[in-house]
């Protein structure tokens, strides 16, 4: 798992030769994510388009669908390709046809990125837990994740770990490294527009913050997958959801199997 290797040699001296020890610039993960997330959107859009064609057939129904369906297709594929060309700065969320499509696309992208991260998590733990003491309780495993692995992956420890002692853990990182370099168009949502929006809807969470949240979200899917992979490898089955309330903080909620609220 070269892209997740640490850039600081915190490696303890071992009695054996470790051929897996290598140093990688931390920007690699940033650069990889910039490509990975739009790619997931493109693949999802392509697959959706192909499935659409498969279901409705290319010939007979296509003509009558072209009026209603083409707009749907175009709007679901075009943002993907546009986004790919212009980088991630253009539009974050999928601007699919209906809300159902949008939700479906979001799910598909989530699963794609999450499973990529899951595989990375498996490898990372296999590699870095070989010199760690065996975690005996779930909390031990979570601590190993928060302290050891987080330091290796993101060069800092988790800032806050909360648990209800019934299987739900909330990890908060106030400066989550992979999203520290992100910036947003503040002009579009300056103070006046923001105030107008709030006045209009009565919800201060809308506007600029809502816009940035939706765009950051896909970039956290990968890391949620890494966490799930790590925990699964250590013997904890869990679902992980990632949220970004305000840049550059990120919150990961870990819900282990059989957890109670």
């Amino acid at each position: 798992m070269a892209q997740a290797s640490p850039s600081n040699p915190t490696e303890p001296s071992t009695s054996y030769i470790d051929p897996t020890f290598s140093l990688v610039n931390t920007s690699c993960l940033d650069l990889l994510l910039i490509e990975l997330v739009p790619m997931a959107y493109r693949i999802t859009a392509d697959l959706a388009a192909r499935e659409d064609e498969w279901i409705h057939g290319p010939s007979s129904k296509a003509k009558q669908r072209k009026l209603s369906g083409a707009s749907n297709d175009a709007s679901s594929t075009a943002p993907g390709t546009l986004r790919g060309g212009a980088g991630v700065g253009t539009e974050g969320g999928p601007v699919g046809g209906g809300t159902v499509d949008e939700e479906e696309a979001r799910e598909a992208v989530f699963h794609r990125l999450e499973s990529v991260g899951y595989r990375v998590g498996l490898g990372v733990v296999e590699r870095f837990s070989r010199d760690a003491p065996r975690p005996t309780t779930p909390l031990d495993s979570i601590k190993f994740l928060c302290k050891d692995l987080w330091t290796l992956l993101f060069r800092k420890q988790i800032d806050n770990l909360k648990t209800n002692h019934r299987g739900i853990y909330v990890l908060t990182d106030n400066t989550f490294k992979p999203i520290t370099r992100m910036s947003f168009d503040t002009k579009k949502y300056d103070a006046a527009v923001q105030a107008a929006l709030v006045a209009q809807t009565g919800d201060p969470a809308l506007g600029r913050d809502a816009n940035s949240q939706a765009r950051v979200q896909p970039f956290l899917y990968f890391h949620a997958g890494v966490i799930r992979g790590c925990l699964d490898s250590l013997g904890i089955k869990a679902t992980v959801t990632a949220e970004c309330a305000a840049l550059p903080a990120a919150t990961f909620q870990i819900r282990t199997a059989g957890a109670k609220n």
């Binding site: 798992m1 070269a2 009695s15 054996y16 470790d18 051929p19 897996t20 595989r119 498996l122 490898g123 296999e126 590699r127 070989r130 699964d232």
Partner: peptide, 25 residues
């Protein structure tokens, strides 16, 4: 011990291989 360490290294190298997919539970 040396044999086990070498085996573990071999297994880690296997997991680093992108073309190996670990069995799904």
């Amino acid at each position: 011990k040396p044999a086990f360490r070498a085996l573990q290294t071999a297994y880690i190298m296997l997991l680093r291989n992108a073309f190996y997919s670990p069995p799904i539970a």
